[in-house]
Amino acid sequence: DTINITLPDGKTLTLTVTPEFTVKELAEEIARRLGLSPEDIKDTHNGKTLDPSLTLAEYGITPGSTITLEIK
């Protein structure tokens, strides 16, 4: 299953994830792909900052969802 990550420059990154991924694991994968530190990444969905300890499923993030990435 894939989700879309909207980057600060407007580009989109597509990642393969499972509903059990935590937001922290997602940030780590994004950081790895972009050459950043996971601590520099802030993920938001529907205007809410995502708690790193919760899973994508707990936020109702499903395949095809879009998450907005902010760099701290």
Rank of each mutant, 00 (worst) to 15 (best):
G35Y: 05
P52Y: 14
L7W: 06
L34Y: 06
R33P: 00
K48M: 14
G10E: 02
A27G: 10
G47C: 13
K24L: 10
E28I: 11
P63H: 08
L50N: 03
P8V: 07
I71F: 13
L36W: 11
L50Q: 03
I3C: 02
T55D: 01
F21K: 06
L26A: 03
K48E: 11
K42H: 11
K11Q: 11
K72A: 13
N46V: 07
S37Q: 12
G35Q: 06
I71Y: 11
D9K: 05
L7D: 02
T68D: 07
K72I: 14
L26N: 00
I5K: 03
K11Y: 13
H45Q: 09
P19A: 08
T16I: 11
T16K: 13
F21W: 14
D43E: 15
S37L: 10
E25A: 09
T16F: 12
E29I: 10
D43S: 15
R32S: 07
L50Y: 11
D51F: 03
G47H: 07
N46H: 09
G47A: 04
D9I: 03
T16V: 12
H45R: 11
T62P: 06
A57F: 12
I67C: 09
N4S: 09
E39P: 14
P19Q: 06
G60R: 01
L26K: 00
I5S: 02
T14F: 07
I61R: 00
L34D: 00
T18V: 06
P52F: 13
G47P: 03
N46L: 12
I41P: 02
T12M: 11
T66P: 01
E39V: 15
I41Q: 02
L13D: 01
G35H: 08
I3N: 02
A27N: 15
K24S: 06
I41M: 07
P52V: 12
L69A: 05
K24W: 14
E28K: 07
T62W: 09
D43I: 15
S37Y: 12
E29C: 08
R32W: 09
T55W: 02
D40E: 12
E28C: 11
A31I: 05
I30A: 02
E58N: 04
A27C: 14
L54N: 05
S37R: 13
R33A: 10
F21M: 15
D43R: 13
T14P: 03
I5E: 01
E28Y: 10
T55S: 06
T12S: 09
F21Q: 11
I61G: 01
T44K: 14
T49A: 10
S65Q: 07
F21E: 07
A31D: 01
A27E: 05
E29D: 04
V17S: 01
E28G: 05
P38H: 07
I41R: 02
T6K: 15
L50G: 03
K42M: 15
I5M: 03
V23R: 01
E25P: 01
H45I: 15
E29G: 03
G64I: 01
T2N: 07
D51I: 05
I61E: 01
E70P: 07
L56T: 01
L26D: 00
D40N: 10
K72G: 12
K72Q: 11
D1R: 06
I61H: 02
V17T: 04
K42R: 12
E29A: 12
L36Y: 08
K24D: 02
L13Q: 02
H45M: 14
L15R: 00
L54A: 13
K11I: 11
T16Y: 12
N4V: 08
E29S: 06
T18I: 04
T18W: 13
L26M: 07
H45P: 05
N4R: 11
E70K: 07
D43T: 15
P63L: 05
G64S: 03
E25Q: 14
A31P: 00
T44Q: 11
F21A: 07
D1H: 11
T68Q: 13
S65T: 12
I30Q: 00
T6F: 12
G64F: 02
T18K: 07
L50T: 03
T14Q: 09
H45W: 15
T12K: 08
S65F: 06
T22N: 02
I3H: 02
N4T: 11
S53C: 09
L7H: 02
D9R: 04
L15K: 00
T22R: 03
Y59I: 15
I3R: 01
R33Y: 13
T68A: 13
L69D: 00
G47Y: 05
I71T: 06
E20R: 08
G47S: 05
G35A: 05
P19D: 06
D1G: 14
A31W: 10
E58C: 07
L50K: 03
R33K: 07
E70T: 10
N4D: 07
L56K: 00
Y59V: 15
L7G: 03
I67S: 00
L26T: 01
L36M: 11
N46Q: 08
E20F: 11
S53R: 10
T18C: 05
L15E: 00
I30T: 02
I71D: 04
T55N: 03
G64K: 01
P63Y: 04
V23N: 01
T49S: 09
T22E: 00
L56Q: 00
L7P: 01
E70V: 13
P8Q: 09
T68L: 12
I30M: 05
P38W: 14
K11C: 12
P38N: 06
T18S: 08
I71W: 10
T44S: 13
G60C: 06
K48V: 13
E70A: 09
G35F: 06
D1I: 15
P52C: 12
A31Q: 05
Y59H: 09
L34T: 10
L56E: 00
V17K: 00
K24P: 00
I41C: 12
T49K: 13
T68C: 14
L69K: 00
I30K: 00
P38M: 12
L54T: 08
P8E: 07
S65P: 00
K42I: 15
K48Q: 13
I30V: 10
D1P: 10
T44A: 13
L36F: 10
R32E: 04
T68I: 14
I41F: 12
E70W: 08
L50F: 10
T18M: 05
T16W: 12
E25W: 06
V17Q: 00
T68M: 14
I41A: 03
T68R: 14
L56F: 02
E29H: 09
L56R: 00
V23P: 00
G47E: 05
T12C: 08
D43G: 15
T22G: 03
E70C: 14
A27H: 15
I67L: 11
L7N: 01
N4H: 12
T2K: 09
E28R: 07
A57L: 13
E29K: 05
E25T: 04
A27L: 15
V17G: 01
D43N: 15
E20L: 12
T22D: 00
Y59R: 03
L26Q: 00
D1V: 15
I71R: 05
S53N: 13
D40I: 11
G47L: 14
T22Q: 02
E58M: 05
N46I: 11
E25C: 07
N46G: 09
S65L: 06
E39F: 15
T6I: 15
H45E: 08
T68N: 11
P8W: 10
L13E: 02
G10V: 01
K72M: 13
T18P: 06
L56W: 02
L69S: 02
D1M: 15
E28H: 08
I41E: 01
T12V: 11
T6Y: 12
F21H: 06
P8S: 11
T22C: 01
T6E: 13
T62Y: 13
T55Q: 03
A57V: 11
G60T: 02
G60H: 03
G35M: 06
D51M: 04
D9S: 13
